[in-house]
Design a protein around this nucleic acid. Sequence first.
DNA 1: CGTCAGTATAACAAAATGTTATTGTTTTCA
DNA 2: TGAAAACAATAACATTTTGTTATACTGACG
Lengths: 298, 298
Amino acid sequence: MGIPLRQLEAFHAVCRAGNVTKAAQSLGISQPAVSRLLATFSGSVGFELFKKEGGRMVPTPESAFLLREVERLLENLDNIGRLSIDLADRRAGHLRIACLPGFATSHLPQVLAGFLEDRPRVRVTLEPDRPERILEWIIDEHYDCGISDELSTHPMVESRLVGMRTVCILPLGHRLAARSEIRPEDLIDERMVHTRRDSAFFLQLNEAFATRGLNLDSRLETRQFTAACMLVAAGAGVSVVSEMDAREYEGRGLVLRPFVPQIPHRLVLLLPSGARSSMVALDFLEVFEASLEPFRIR
Amino acid sequence: MGIPLRQLEAFHAVCRAGNVTKAAQSLGISQPAVSRLLATFSGSVGFELFKKEGGRMVPTPESAFLLREVERLLENLDNIGRLSIDLADRRAGHLRIACLPGFATSHLPQVLAGFLEDRPRVRVTLEPDRPERILEWIIDEHYDCGISDELSTHPMVESRLVGMRTVCILPLGHRLAARSEIRPEDLIDERMVHTRRDSAFFLQLNEAFATRGLNLDSRLETRQFTAACMLVAAGAGVSVVSEMDAREYEGRGLVLRPFVPQIPHRLVLLLPSGARSSMVALDFLEVFEASLEPFRIR
DNA sequence: CGTCAGTATAACAAAATGTTATTGTTTTCA
DNA sequence: TGAAAACAATAACATTTTGTTATACTGACG
């Protein structure tokens, strides 16, 4: 059978203290208790643990050799104690996030940094990818939560929809910057930067033009709002993007104006369904959702 | 207080087995015992340890995180168990040997290799140096045993004297090789290779010449018998050295002949006094002493 | 030599860990 | 669906480990 832990603790304490009495004090138990633990331990290992040397208990070469291992063990145990407290407080664990590429660079880093500030033992894996892959990853439970823009109907995934406000962005000094708000008809002569033609957001935007009998001049297509921001700032055209992303790039050559009608960008937060999530993941998603509040519709 | 080890063992066993009953079997105890350990553990850490998933106990993300640490701990404990057995069997430990430089290359390696063969967990540090330093090191307990050629009177050091047979060595084809034994008078016209002028062995050798009214022709002085062997083999002269070293170099251009009178080379084995030695060190010294037997006087 | 600090031993109390018996739960499968 | 089977939880109690206090032993030291 294994060696009783208490014996190792006693052995360690005596090595450190140099005598049984002080060791007992440091363990918060009585001296005879330590004496006996030691005697039992010595009996079971089969060699002398200590030599008495001028009133001090000095480890024999053998037990000195053992001591190093025992110290490692006790440190390890200590670590487990603290870790389990952190886990209970949701201050430790592994948080695996799959997100749209745009988030990996623009809004998420701030939120994540804040989240980790008082959770020093949380380890994070951040994986940016396309929505279909994000969904797969959540289903396979390779990731704990996903930030995407496509709703899922998969039974193993719980998705939470968040409607995000969008704005029209213009390069600095653009003629339309004089307007207090922008409408589809203002943009008919503009080169538009927009998301993929098959994206839900583009379809809605296009619809806004179509119902007014207007044609959206599609020139530049990109997956990410962040890329659209950079393109507009560089003078490549104008765009309608999530206000959150626009704010991130404000001051770098962008002008923001309300777009009417308001077209929501549907963000989707994904979780494995059925309470299989880690507590840290749940906490994180809560924090993340709160961070979206200023840019949310209603 | 620390987490009781048994709870960690139970937790680990259930994670591996996937259900409490098998875990109990693997621990060799009853199922209710494991159930309770688990319940207590869960209560004290403050979070759920398992989710039941189709008849299997699956760790929650939190406890999966803990599990890795627990596994390390248990491995560590296992290791301590085996280590203490090895230490008791004198099959583990650290053996620090300080020796004369000659031994580091000529006789010791063989002996050491044999010694370590069935003591795979013994770690060795071998430090060749001059006799004075060897003594210091033993006194300071930086080394467990010393192989030297100077007796010590230091109270903290126990020294054991071993008289070693010496022989005269000649280069192959030397005129004296015809003799069955060599005497001082045979060597008066020879260039002598010998140990340091202030070494005990040289003084004895010189004495053998002096009492016969002869003069030892000192040409080549070296600390080591092994070096003397190489020099003689190379035709640099003749010498009187420990038979043990001579045998080591026999067949490499050396001829051995008895030297009369027999002058013992006094080897000295050193140990820290007062039973402060590790058991491995004592074992080693015993083995080493035995290895000297064939070359010992009487 | 007696004192003192420290260690070991004895006798017993409390806590942890084990047991068997039994009762709830799920899962599985006819 | 519902009964059998498999498994987990609980209860009541035995055993072992770990703790306690009281006291005897031991070696270092003035």
